[in-house]
Design a protein around this nucleic acid. Structure first.
Lengths: 344, 344
DNA sequence: TATTAGCACTCCCTCTTAATGAGTGCTAAC
DNA sequence: GTTAGCACTCATTAAGAGGGAGTGCTAATA
């Protein structure tokens, strides 16, 4: 168990290192007015803290730097919520109050604001469409052989695919197909759509419509959706400002990671909802060893969610980011749920 | 006018510098088997070439490097088409032959292949939708107040917007609106759509439908499209491999540029069609001073086009890239025009 | 007259060395 | 338990030396 004085010292080390990016020495700590002991005493305490694994040296005679364990302890025990400045609050309100029409735009703006305020990189995961429910099917023929199939969901999301029509398919066949699909599948969630099609709808189609297997295959494709929401980035190049990223290889690795959708998505995986902080190697990804990720999820209406992530150096201003992400999550939830209730 | 020997020497300097990224010295040039003169003579010629502005030194006693004027001359007069390897041809065919369904996917893959083959960054501009023609309007109500308006174009492209319905708008009003829109606007290009709405359709609507000005405003929004095609990137991080980009600030500036849509679009602006090469400062953009951009356009069907750009260091393998981009342009044009003819 | 060998000179790059300074750990005194 | 004092470590910076690649010029050569 850490003594009070050790807690104080650990806190100063983390806080100072977060702002300066320089190893923190005993003299520097002793300068804080609320620290009354001499540098020598602090050095003894630091030796203990190091032995316990909370801080480490960059070389034999350097100041101390928080270890991952140190950050973890700081995040778990020393973090205190801070309040936001008027300017920040204003910025948030500008996105949410401003009657913005499209959900997509709200999310996009949010990502930018968050990255501006933190000067870290922000990733927003849009809501997963798989819980939307079908509102309407439509098939619009383009030519003898092709048509566009459209699904409108209860949230106003529109999915569309180009499909191939069977030989000899006539307009009345299209009408019939549309009717069958709408009769049977309106209200079904996109997640269930595939299985519902297989289990019943295809059979009905085969009975009533001059159809072909290739057409059914096309419809199968229509019902296949991306499993995850769309990804929005804010401040992709912000990491260039961080001194720990003055190394080209690191920047490069990070940039490459962000180009790969699956790797980005994996940053968001969590057992439960709430605000999560993953520090350095806790991300289980070599590229992320020097980075921390703070994630939270926001909700839209009753059962849909999206996620927010802020990626910064391990030496991240956790207090601030946690506060900001919390405000953003509730702001987004509020703004977007309203839209849903309005039927949008 | 340059002598034959000067042409030869300039060519060697450009070719060698392109592959090695190192200033080229007289001795190195004299080693080429088809160069028969001694280093001393070559030095004299180089002094002349330098005076004429085609090459320059990085410092007093360094080898020579092509100047922008030198590259320009090389590109205009010394470039010879090269043939592609079997492997490369195979790669291209895999995108175009493979019966890929969605146009978007073909474009995306093309960007990746091109960046893989060149190890530069590729940008593809999707076709501009403004020349598509309306195939069908659809309005799907979501709630009392909101609905989704959908436009399907003759190419199978789907545009959609959420709109607000006027108070007291009933289903039959929606039916009427859909009919009016489809009667009057099918076949109109998206470019003209706005003006056609204003000139006639809105008046008809006002006569037949219990409508409101807010509704008309919504429809106006529906007819507003992005002016340019979608942007696809390939090999965004390839520039990290180029030795001239071992400077963090340059990489950063480039990355930031690529995040800004308008700046990316401006790379494509050209008076006429065909393959264009812009070298360094010819791009009129500070960030691009060390970069060259080769652009070409591809066509889809009769009157739509998209563009291809390859961004590399000024020290770019112009011959190869020009060949590749030319193959890609005709391949893309062929593949996508077929799709259009199939009605897709 | 065009070409070339020879040579002094320039500038970059790398390696070494020395000086500086921030910070530590330990010991002994308070 | 705390602290002053001091020897020690290591990163960082600056200055200097040596080597190498390449040039420009001059004088000799074909």
């Amino acid at each position: 168990m850490l003594t009070n004085r050790q807690l104080q010292i650990l806190q100063v080390i983390v806080d100072d290192f977060v702002t300066s990016a320089q190893p923190v020495g005993s003299r520097q700590i002793s300068k804080k007015e609320w620290i009354t002991t001499s540098p020598a005493t602090i050095r003894n305490e630091m030796a203990d803290l190091e032995e316990l694994g909370f801080i480490e040296k960059t070389h034999t005679s350097s100041g101390r730097v928080p270890s991952e364990k140190g950050y973890r302890f700081y995040v778990d025990h020393l973090l205190q919520p801070i309040s936001m400045s008027a300017r920040e609050i204003g910025l948030f309100q500008s996105v949410f109050k401003n009657q913005i029409v499209e959900m997509e735009q709200v999310i996009r703006e949010s990502a930018n604001i968050l990255s501006d305020l933190t000067s870290y990189t922000t990733i927003l995961l849009g809501p997963n469409v798989s819980k939307h429910r079908v509102k309407r099917f439509q098939i619009v023929p383009l030519s003898e052989q092709t048509a566009v199939a459209i699904i409108v969901t209860d949230n106003g999301h529109v999915e569309n695919r180009t499909i191939t029509l069977p030989q000899g398919f006539v307009p009345s066949d299209i009408e019939k197909t549309i009717n069958i699909l709408n009769e049977r599948l309106v209200g079904v969630s996109l997640l269930e759509l595939q299985s519902r099609l297989e289990l019943e709808t295809f059979n009905v189609l085969r009975q009533h419509v001059n159809t072909a297997d290739s057409f059914i295959q096309s419809l199968r494709n229509v019902a296949t959706f991306q499993n995850e929401g769309k990804i929005y980035f804010g401040g992709k190049t912000n990491m260039f400002n961080q001194p720990e990223f003055h190394d080209l290889n690191k920047v490069r690795a990070l940039m490459e990671m962000m180009e790969k959708e699956s790797q980005v998505i994996s940053l968001f995986q969590h057992e439960d909802a709430g605000i999560h902080i993953r520090i350095g190697s806790e991300n289980n990804h070599l590229v992320m060893d020097d980075l921390s990720v703070i994630t939270a999820s926001y909700s839209i209406g009753n059962d849909q969610e999206g996620s927010i992530a802020i990626i910064g150096p391990k030496r991240m201003d956790y207090q601030r980011v946690v506060s900001l992400i919390d405000v953003m999550r509730s702001g987004l939830s509020g703004a977007l749920s309203n839209k849903v209730n309005d039927g949008l």
